[in-house]
Design a protein around this nucleic acid. Sequence first.
DNA 1: TGACATTCGTTCGCTACCTTGCGATTATCG
DNA 2: CGATAATCGCAAGGTAGCGAACGAATGTCA
Lengths: 149, 149
Amino acid sequence: MRDQADIEQLSAGAWTKRCYFAGRALMDATLRPYDLGSTQWYVLWHLANNGPSVQRDLGRALELERATLSGIISTLVRKDLVEQTSSGEDQRQRLLTLSAAGEALWRQLPDLSFIHEAAFGGIDEAELATTIRVLQSATERLQKLLRKD
Amino acid sequence: MRDQADIEQLSAGAWTKRCYFAGRALMDATLRPYDLGSTQWYVLWHLANNGPSVQRDLGRALELERATLSGIISTLVRKDLVEQTSSGEDQRQRLLTLSAAGEALWRQLPDLSFIHEAAFGGIDEAELATTIRVLQSATERLQKLLRKD
DNA sequence: TGACATTCGTTCGCTACCTTGCGATTATCG
DNA sequence: CGATAATCGCAAGGTAGCGAACGAATGTCA
């Protein structure tokens, strides 16, 4: 969030933001032909790899608020990619399952790991480890401040 | 985007996302009492520090699409914080200026630099520099891929 | 058991990001 | 000069995030 002149002097926070958006944009662009958003992809990914899941657990795994996930799920249900049934035991919970169409779509989706490879492939292991450590520490410190309020 | 069990093994990309959202959440929480969103704050910040600006230039400085900025500005105009006039010269352009109310609000807003300080303060200079370099490189590589399409 | 608290999913209203497509204006070049 | 191209802002429609408030279901405890 600076003028382009001093692009070299951006802060760590600014680069974090730019990097996140660049990755997100590439993911969105890759998924657009399949009419899928990035978070919709994460839901399919989780269901495809972990099997049926209760909505609450999925929300925790993907770190999404209930309200956010509720909208995503209803979109996926409308597209017939996911089935949402009430899960016997606890009548408040909803069980999510990939539909046949959802499984079929999942099989034809491209592998997105090229994005992470493009971003961080070939970077020195130690530098990558440092980056992860710094970002993890920053995240934890910010979350601690958030909880204080 | 993993289960909580293996939170320690998140990738660099995942930590970038988490860190960005944590900072954004803290910013939003701090600005909420003033009924300002984070991007609205960036607009006020730019106008307060760089003086009146043409909408096109502001969009480039903040890296926002024209359509996105258009909505933000109309919100700020509705709140009487920003004035949008047609800038004599080029009749397509709009000149943005902080209103009196906007300047008054800006003066009473808290300093947000504590967020960056909380996240990255006290971290070893060399490690911070490495982090910035890795994120910058990843961003540029992703953007190059994006332009290819 | 019955009152109260908690959890789960939804809806509503908001911010903020995108693409597409439009009209108006301005720049360019044959 | 005039046709064409480029630029600027806006509107519409979609995705994705949030908080607040609500009903239904479930837990808890006096």
